[in-house]
Nucleic acid binder design. Structure first.
Length: 352
DNA sequence: CACCCGTGGCG
DNA sequence: TCGCCAAGGGT
């Protein structure tokens, strides 16, 4: 391991205080509940997206006790559209663990925090550093990029060995003897530097506080880092969605606890047209195909084929699920594309 | 440890 | 358009 620039931490702290971000809704507090909630929402999710969710969630669940006491469906409803729904389930379980096992107060060390559901090494470090000033490092996408550039780190960041090395580098770059709010400023500085200057495509090296100690900058091509070799493979799937509707309600079922859209509500899904027709029997003749919807997930490319089935008030489609009144349907935890389909469907009049 | 899990925005 | 990826963690 090369000698690490001791100037990194003090410079980062000074830069964050002078030029970092300070006005985000989850900043300016040391309340572990608020910090934790923001960190979970921000996992793999951009700040601009979270801004639309965080205040509403906090208003509905002002503290960890309120969240722990809430039905999971209420939590999913407020998470609806944010993606990675296991985060919401773990969030709920974590709140219940904090109440049941820690007297309603978050543990104060990264090591203890990391034992809670949905809190990994990086999130634990963020909470511990922001709220309790612990000398531990985060390692998220921003930090991976910043560190791999400062160090001209040649390892493939997708590989486990490289991750381990980056964690060691991150820990070695920490402030030697942090005082007061130093760890909070340092941790925020790592994120801010990656988000505002050391960006993926056009890093603003000219105004970067690390310009003279950045190995990638000196190499002439900072965007060559972080090194990634593995390419994403997306599998294609076609899903038939049974949109059984009557004037006052739509037929929905709760998705299984595992897999895509786990724990959310959605119309019954079929892997083939044959399966859909087999489930419906004679009713299949009344299906009305809608426009296909393309929906891509991280590792899956979905083509959703909505099949509308208008039914009279006293009928049922004969597949698992329940009638949900239109007034309630859009308030449920729904996957984003399903929400879109239902909004269109609600406004379509039934025949006759 | 390789794979799984959403969504929206941007170059 | 389309590939990339963002305050990752669970299994």
């Amino acid at each position: 391991m090369t000698a690490l620039p001791s100037a990194f931490a003090p410079r980062l702290i000074a830069w964050q205080r002078a030029s970092g971000r300070h006005g985000l809704p989850w900043q300016g507090t040391r309340d572990p509940y608020r910090v934790w909630l923001s960190e979970i929402m921000l996992q793999q999710t951009q700040v601009s997206t979270v801004l639309g969710y965080y205040p509403r969630f906090l208003e509905r669940f002002p503290d960890v006790a309120a969240l722990a006491a809430a039905p999971i469906d209420d939590v999913m409803a407020l998470w609806s559209g944010l993606g990675y729904y296991s985060r919401a389930r773990h969030l709920h379980r974590c709140a219940q663990a904090v109440v049941a096992q820690h007297g309603g107060r978050f543990p104060r060390t990264a090591a203890e925090l990391q034992t809670l559901p949905g809190i990994g090494a990086s999130t634990a470090a963020a909470i511990a550093a922001f709220c309790f000033g612990e000398r531990v490092s985060i390692l998220d996408g921003n930090v991976r990029r910043v560190l791999s550039r400062v160090l001209a780190f040649e390892g493939d960041v997708a590989e486990t060995a490289a991750q381990r090395a980056l964690w060691a580098h991150a820990q070695a770059l920490l402030p030697k003897a942090p005082e007061g709010d130093d760890m909070a400023a340092y941790t925020q500085g790592l994120m801010d530097l990656g988000a505002t200057l050391c960006t993926r495509s056009k890093p603003a090296c000219v105004v970067c506080p690390m310009v003279d100690l950045c190995a990638a900058r000196m190499s002439g091509d900072p965007t060559r880092f972080p090194v990634k070799t593995r390419k994403l493979v997306r599998r294609f799937e076609r899903w038939w969605l049974l949109l059984a509707v009557r004037a006052d309600a739509v037929w929905l079922q709760r998705r299984p606890e595992r897999g895509i859209w786990a724990g959310l509500y959605a119309p019954p899904v079929f892997a083939s047209e044959d399966a859909l027709h087999a489930a419906l029997g004679d009713r299949a003749a009344r299906l009305e195909p809608g426009s296909p919807v393309s929906h891509s997930l991280t590792h899956r490319e979905l083509e959703l084929l909505p099949q509308r089935l208008p039914l009279p008030a006293d009928a049922a489609p004969g597949v698992p699920g329940q009638w949900v009144p239109w007034t309630e349907a859009l308030g449920l935890g729904l996957p984003a594309p399903v929400r879109g389909l239902l909004q269109v469907l609600r406004d379509q009049p039934l025949p006759q």
